[in-house]
Amino acid sequence: MTAAIRIRAKWAHGVTEVMLLMPHPMETGLRKGTDGRLIPAHFITDLQVHVEGRTVMSATMSHAVSQDPLIGFRFKGGNLGQKVTVAWVDNTRQSRSDSAPIS
């Protein structure tokens, strides 16, 4: 039901720069809906990024990360065409994984 994670991984001078955009409501559980009732919390709690079996980034997140989390980082190595796999799990146990090649 969730939209695909958008992954941009660019290699330059031995370093791969990764930018991820994970469509997700990131509801805090503190906000009221139009009916005046609290909207239940719904947010990504865990993020893992792998390249060819190697973990290049992992994160634990709270609901205070903005809606549609955008995360940028860089790792040494990586080769053109290698697959970057991103997986998240949220607090309702939903999960999603997507991958894209390094370009």
Binding site: V15, V56, A59, M61, S62, A64, P69
Partner: peptide, 24 residues
């Protein structure tokens, strides 16, 4: 913030000690 800890990144060896994101 109501919950001060926003996000925590684990940096494996080989990953540069740099992160960027957007927070509330």
């Amino acid at each position: 913030n109501p919950d001060p800890l926003v996000v925590r990144f684990l940096i494996p060896a080989g990953t540069e000690p740099f992160v960027s994101t957007r927070i509330k």
